[in-house]
Design a protein around this nucleic acid. Structure first.
Lengths: 166, 166
DNA sequence: AAAGCTGGTGTTATAGTATAACCATTAATG
DNA sequence: CATTAATGGTTATACTATAACACCAGCTTT
């Protein structure tokens, strides 16, 4: 992972970020013989507009503008598909959705959520997940899914007088 | 923590569990000069009826039976109070609430959620939280709150043909 | 080509979760 | 007792998510 790929980094190139995500999504769906339809690709593109998670209802106006119907089931279906393919994650504590930077292997994310600028970064959570596994196993609990969402302040928002993204 | 205090344990004595939770709540509120009113105590008692989290709307009928009004704001106010006092936790992935076994010190819980019997156990999560802190600090992120919710199967529900609590 | 199947989408309605806003009442304080 | 703060009642509404059924396009099977 390069420094630029981290959303906090001043040199983060988001247009590269989003185009790469879309290209990878197209590749993955092709390889898996899944259909990345126009609606699904649009929803994915909208979610990748930023590293701030979007709610399902935030997506509806843009779908309407693009000429699709804009009833909730449409966007939830697209989101279900994208989640199943690992292309987006749902953030339970926000009821919102964010693009996944590594959709090629199925995994639960571990997220850092900035309370000021709302930017979300997905951690490589190997050691945390191992720790959870260890503690769960000590109680005989079989882990199937992990929801790990950390709220706080990102490096950029810890300096007072800094511009906010809200 | 004794073995019996773990909800999975065959000798878990829940009537002891709930009475202790209520007694501790009364003590804590008294010490903090906070008012554990009838509604608040009833909501706490209802939540402690089991180790399965309850949704806010699950509580309304019981409030009505007890002669209180049963509109949503009533129960959400009680839940807000109980959360502020550390007496209950909200499980974001379930939109539900569970009693906290150690309300005397403020903390975020780390929960094991059984997908079969829906029993939730709160871990002593020191080492997990440390691990999270370490990873967050490496990115310059200042942690304020942690949401850690693990879904899977509890020991009792991993044996097929076993009775379910649903 | 006709019939039948599948997956994706359109559409309407409704379920489920949470809060805003305003008013009445009760409890704590001086 | 008067004042103030905290609590609760009430109505309405916002926000999040899904059920259920209809339609259609593309495909397979005959």
């Amino acid at each position: 992972m390069s420094h630029q790929s981290i959303a906090y980094h001043p040199e983060h190139n988001h247009s590269h970020c989003i185009e790469q995500a879309l290209a990878q999504a197209r590749e993955l769906c092709k390889a898996r013989k899944q259909r990345l339809t126009a609606i699904r690709e649009l929803v994915l593109r909208l979610i990748w507009q930023s590293h701030q998670p979007l709610g399902a209802y935030d997506l509806l106006p843009a779908l309407a503008e693009a000429g699709f119907n804009s009833a909730p089931p449409t966007v939830y279906r697209a989101l279900d598909f994208l989640q199943t393919q690992g292309l987006v994650h749902r953030i339970a504590s926000l009821n919102a959705f964010v693009g996944c930077p590594s959709p090629e292997h199925a995994h639960d994310g571990c997220f850092l959520i900035c309370e000021n600028c709302r930017t979300v970064v997905e951690l490589d959570a190997g050691s945390i997940i191992n720790q959870v596994q260890t503690e769960a196993q000590a109680l005989g609990f079989a882990v199937r899914q992990q929801t790990i969402e950390i709220s706080g302040l990102c490096p950029n928002c810890q300096n007072p007088g800094q511009s906010s993204d809200s």
